[in-house]
Write a protein that binds this DNA or RNA. Structure first.
Lengths: 334, 334
DNA sequence: TTGAAAGCGTTACCAC
DNA sequence: GTGGTAACGCTTTCAA
């Protein structure tokens, strides 16, 4: 194994000089700089992160706690993870996985043993056991989601309230006087997921403002449920609009509408969440929650905290989604 | 920060004794053992992994290279990651994420800088640039998938050949004389994914053996394609059977069959891959590739290599899938 | 059965 | 501009 000492010998300088070449924390003559650089490449030197971490008290590793039973769909979760990993790498950091089942003690383990310098927690809930622990941890932490008590916790999330308002306003502007809100799956409502409340609040506020009438119907991944939702919506208005935040049922709802002889995007409006829309079969207006933006922001905030560039502010950072009209061909089901 | 030196002072022993208490590499008197243990809990001691890794030349961190553009669906990929992380934890290791875009040089980085002790590579392809590098790496590596040249590479994968044989044999046993093989999406075929060849080989071998006739039709996530596949299959036999390894099109195929008035599992056999089958709407026979088993095996092999318990054998380890008949209610589409 | 001390390969302070 | 050297907090050898 090649050490900085070997490089020093090869370059004819002291070992500490090699260290200073790497850190750039000291003005060096062009000559030494070059000689050390050459020695490094000649020997194929790679600094030992263990020794580095021990001496510098920084490992450049960030812990990422991932959910085991995700509320959001796996595809979106996967994107979060990939973006967080890439983004962290861009800032010179690596990601250590911590699974949710390790809970608060898992956080204390990886921080206490100094495996990582900071933490990103995914999918925090309103009443989350990890939040009080975060406050006591002496390292930077960013959480994705908004806990009930966000006091002095740095949070990042999509702004579900604005998302709902944008959607309802969009429908109002299109001339709808009524919107059928196909609810999130009941399983989600029962759990401790406050973004639903925030979405509800947005719907209510925008509806109030624009005088649009909201019919809330049961959602869920069953054909019958969706069929019922569609029929209720179609009965409720002669220019119907559907608001379908749960991306899991969009395809089903689209088909259901078409089986009822309606053309989404034309004689009926359908607004869903655009994270995946893998099998686009009709024009669809989507709310884009862009996990990429949320992930990137989380990493940025954390790294800022680690680098001491500016403190983690303990605030809630909400990324505002956008409304997009997707192009696609209409395919009538066989 | 509490160090082993503090613990030593508190317990009235030397620092090295504290180390030996943790490692158990030396017989200690019950008395010291107890006193050190107590001192540890009293002070809330957590060993510093950085110092530990530097001295012991082991970080107990395993690198996991995840694909950015997964061929397998995200849900299944997610399960791989979760199982690998949990399993590694069970063996006293943590997982460091490395994204595929870092390529071979990413591997050299995390190993060269000694961030991790070993590597698990996901989704290796037949002709994978990382494989030659794996051979030169001086650390244990386990790859998931089977590269074209697997010489001295430790691989784990599902046995797609056996899977296909099991499926075809199952259909033959059910009395089918013909099976319609709804192909993998053409995108997959074009890519460098050898499990498809292995699956093909299994189909061919079993068909040969049992004298069953195979009709291979185009697959893919489009309604029309699947509609065509179904019609071809129904024309080809009066007791039709469908073999649908691509889990992405199963639901569509089921619906398509029902729209044609057939009842899968009753007057027509349908055999698919069971990894997700989220919206089971008909009885379905599935091939279960169980990513859990593959992941767990990969971790087990790697840790064995790290612990020097037995060498990584450089062999291909294939996990044989099973055939399962799923119970579910038949729901006629609206 | 235990302790002292020499590493492990860096960083960063103190000299010059 | 540069070199020497003391940490960093462990593991492990050598001695007792």
């Amino acid at each position: 194994m090649v050490t900085s000492r070997d490089v020093a010998r090869e370059a004819g300088v002291s070992q500490s000089t090699v260290s200073y070449v790497m850190s750039g924390k000291r003005p060096l003559s062009d000559d030494t700089l070059r000689r050390v650089d050459e020695a490094m490449t000649r020997l194929g030197y790679q600094p030992n992160s263990r020794a580095r971490a021990l001496a510098a008290k920084r490992s450049h590793v960030v812990g990422l706690m991932i959910p085991l039973s995700p509320r959001i769909e796996a595809a979106s979760l996967m994107r979060f993870i990939q973006v967080i990993a890439s983004e962290a790498r861009g800032h010179g950091h690596d990601i250590l996985l911590v699974t949710e089942d390790e809970g608060a003690s898992g956080m204390q383990r990886v921080i206490g043993e100094q495996i990582c310098d900071g933490l990103i927690l995914m999918q925090v809930e309103t009443d989350d056991e990890r939040i009080p622990v975060v406050r006591d941890l002496k390292v930077p932490v960013v959480v994705i989601g908004v806990p009930g008590d966000a006091e002095s916790i740095t949070c990042v999330d999509a702004d579900y309230r604005s998302a709902a308002e944008l959607a309802v306003d969009f429908l109002a502007a299109r001339g709808h006087r009524q919107v059928t809100f196909v609810d999130w799956p009941s399983g989600l409502r029962q759990r401790d997921v406050n973004f639903i409340e925030r979405f509800d609040a947005g719907v209510a506020a925008a509806a109030q403002r624009s005088g649009i009438e909201v019919l809330q119907v049961e959602g869920g991944a069953h054909r019958e449920t969706i069929g019922r939702a569609v029929r209720s919506g179609l009965e409720a208005s002669n220019y119907p609009a559907f608001l379908v935040p749960d991306s899991g049922v969009q395809a089903m709802l689209q088909e259901s509408l078409m089986l009822e002889g309606r053309r989404p995007g034309l004689d009926v409006s359908l607004i869903g969440s655009g994270e995946d829309a893998p099998q686009q079969i009709v024009p669809l207006t989507t709310i884009d929650f862009v996990p990429n933006v949320v992930s990137a922001r989380a990493v940025e905030l954390l790294v800022a905290g680690l680098d001491g560039r500016r403190e983690l502010d303990g605030q809630v950072h909400l990324e505002v989604p956008t409304i997009t009209e997707r192009e696609s061909t209409i395919v009538v089901p066989t």
